[in-house]
């Protein structure tokens, strides 16, 4: 347990010095973008990994958060420090509205119903030009105003806002999963009938889980939009929902580390495959298939196995020395 703490502290310290390392502005951008995706994936993990309902609506909530914060700050002139929490609340409300009909279904059906909602949200973003700017989108979205002389229009400073948001999110998920509520989620995932039999209100907890995942999706969207200063419907299609699902699974669903690793893979891997040009997505998809064949529990599990192997080897060596 102690060793884990040390590793964790080192990773957090390292993430704070990243902007000081000379990795170039594009790589820093990729890291920031990955961190936004960590929040998105952590949110999805609540419903998908812990509660066992694979939702294809995450990109929709990402979009709702992004557009809410953008429109509120730009058109109504509300401070960005307020529009981000408001965007989270609005996404939560949409989570309740969508969750109620969608959670009446299960399994693949649930996936397809949530996919339908993502498509509906996307079509509205494209078509209600007056409100969302349609395909051209909304430009000139403001940055959060300066606090203590820290100018958040600088990408290096905004990085810290994202990083702190990620840490708060992870802490929240960690606390949540240790609480009664979190254990209820896991019980529902393992066996719904049993959960009902021991007195867990299925609809209530599934709605709660889905709403939390919607709120975190919206949080990621709001952070994203004040980072890029521009929003159009492109990053909110069903494809991105699927990428979020893959991020959770690749990392290891139902774990807290999993979505973090998964989000970074989902952002960095396609970048490194750019050399393959038009074959990029084919290689990427074939890699996915191979991953499912050979390491279906995700990368976190693989690391765990490797770590245990090394540990047992070290232990054996020290024993023979004795």
């Amino acid at each position: 347990m102690n060793k884990k703490r040390i590793i964790l502290t080192l990773i957090i310290l390292f993430s704070f010095v990243i902007p000081f390392l000379d990795i170039g502005s594009y790589n820093l951008h990729l890291v920031s973008y990955s961190l936004i995706w960590v929040i998105l994936a952590q949110g999805l993990n609540v419903i998908q990994g812990f509660t066992g309902y694979v939702s294809i609506a995450q990109a929709g909530f990402f979009g709702i958060g992004a557009y809410s914060s953008a429109i509120l700050s730009l058109n109504l002139g509300i401070s960005v420090w307020l529009t981000i929490p408001l965007a989270i609340v609005i996404s939560g409300i949409f989570g309740i509205l969508i969750g109620y009909p969608a959670l009446r279904t299960q399994g693949h059906y649930f996936a397809i119903v949530t996919m339908s909602f993502t498509m509906i949200i996307w079509v509205f973003m494209m078509s209600s030009v007056k409100f969302t700017g349609g395909e051209e989108g909304i430009p000139n979205i403001p940055s959060p105003s300066s606090v203590f002389g820290i100018d958040f229009s600088l990408k290096e400073n905004y990085y810290y806002l994202i990083l702190i948001s990620v840490l708060i999110t992870i802490l929240f998920i960690y606390r949540l999963m240790q609480s009664r509520v979190g254990r209820a989620f896991i019980t529902i995932r393992e066996n719904e009938q049993l959960a009902q039999a021991v007195g867990i209100s299925l609809l209530k907890y599934k709605m709660l889980s889905f709403t939390i995942s919607a709120m975190l999706g919206g949080f990621a969207g709001a952070l994203y939009v004040h980072y890029t200063h521009f929003v159009n419907p492109t990053p909110f299609t069903v494809d991105y929902s699927l990428n979020a699902i893959l991020a959770v699974i690749l990392g290891g669903s139902g774990t807290i580390i999993g979505p973090i690793i998964g989000a970074f893979i989902m952002i960095f891997l396609p970048e490194y495959l750019r050399i393959a040009e038009e074959y990029r997505l084919i290689i990427y998809a074939v890699m996915l298939i191979l991953i499912v064949f050979y390491m279906p529990k995700g990368i976190t599990n693989l690391i765990k196995i490797a770590y245990n192997k090394v540990l047992s080897k070290v232990a054996r060596k020290s024993e023979t020395k004795k």
Binding site: A111, E278, Y279, L281, I282, A285, L288, I289
Partner: peptide, 30 residues
């Protein structure tokens, strides 16, 4: 593609299906 995951959890065939869609669509584009 599907037979190797026939007895695995349902999410596996779900990902395989999505990945196959990406493969076929992009091969067609090429």
């Amino acid at each position: 593609a599907y037979r190797p995951v026939a007895n695995a959890p349902p999410i596996n065939s779900f990902i395989i299906a999505l990945a196959l869609m990406m493969v076929i669509d992009n091969v067609a584009t090429v």
